[in-house]
Design a protein around this nucleic acid. Structure first.
Ligand SMILES: [Zn+2]
Ligand SMILES: [Zn+2]
Ligand SMILES: [Zn+2]
Ligand SMILES: [Zn+2]
Lengths: 154, 154
DNA sequence: CCTTGTTTTGTTATGTTATAACATTACCCA
DNA sequence: TGGGTAATGTTATAACATAACAAAACAAGG
């Protein structure tokens, strides 16, 4: 292919940012591409090490956390709070708005699979919220821990 | 009432531990009662401060983390990974096994409401897991951020 | 252009959360 | 009552995250 998947997603991400009136600076783009190339989830400090090795040897933690906060805010990346890790959203190029996302985290190999929360579950959750008058602020993320199919077999 | 709610739950918790063949030691019981009396979610270090003030002035972080790990393992407490907080399970005395739990976390007042995950959502999740062959290891916790009914009004 | 307010980045320092490692004590059971 | 296991004590440090302020880059109106 002429255009790599990474480039393709970066372009899409850049467009989304323009549409939102926010800036996809070079630094933010570099962090995003590190996440895309690794594929799996990584901690902020792992990403920082790569960023230093590759782009800016004297970078400090705030640099990475700022970039990550931005990308998470824009829905381009996710933070997995149960493992203190970050990863690129796996659904940037497809459109389905995030109304809820499920992450299947393999505790053995460290892999993550991202899937949209199914419709009925979202509706049911909304009903629960309505009953108690709770007003949601961020997209709900469900982090499910276990073994992926490969690791479960072994 | 002759027996306080805290005592009642502590007794129930003690029974559950006996049934599981694990020990509800005085230290663990003390931590549990601190959580029950506070009611809301607290960080490990907040609990440690209270524990030092009330039970053991020279206690160190591992003491608290060990007790918390135990209580979470036994299903007597929960860890909210999105806020690094711990709280007593709100469903110790009722029986319904935890197949999934939803926490509504108010970002304004800090309050938390715990509800069992509704049936259809659990089934749907199980279906997703079956499709990809993922084997679950811990009860899934969904941490939903927003505003509780009181805070949403103001 | 220039200047002025805003956003982003740089930099230092520190705060917060959690665990490793090993010593000691308590507990259980044969 | 000895010997193994589980729990606790203790010191040190690792891992995760942010406060605070300075400097630079950017955008937009004059
Ligand atoms: Zn996503
Ligand atoms: Zn795996
Ligand atoms: Zn519970
Ligand atoms: Zn509230």
């Amino acid at each position: 292919m002429a255009v790599s998947r990474t480039e393709q997603i970066l372009n899409s991400a850049e467009q989304q940012c323009r549409k939102q009136g926010v800036r996809m600076t070079p630094q933010r783009k570099q962090v995003m591409s590190l996440m895309l190339e690794q594929g799996g989830p990584q901690t902020a400090y792992q990403l920082l090490d790569q960023f230093k090795a590759r782009y800016q040897s004297n970078a400090q933690p705030p640099t990475m956390y700022r970039a990550l906060d931005f990308l998470v805010q824009q829905g381009l990346a996710h933070r997995l709070s149960s493992t203190n890790q970050y990863l690129a959203c796996d659904h940037i190029t497809c459109q389905h708005g995030h109304r809820g996302t499920v992450f299947l985290l393999c505790d053995q190999c460290g892999g993550v699979q991202e899937t949209p929360m199914a419709g009925a579950a979202v509706d049911e959750l909304q009903q629960t919220l309505d009953e108690v008058g709770f007003v949601i602020q961020r997209e709900p993320l469900l982090e499910v821990h276990g073994r992926c199919v490969d690791c479960a077999a072994s």
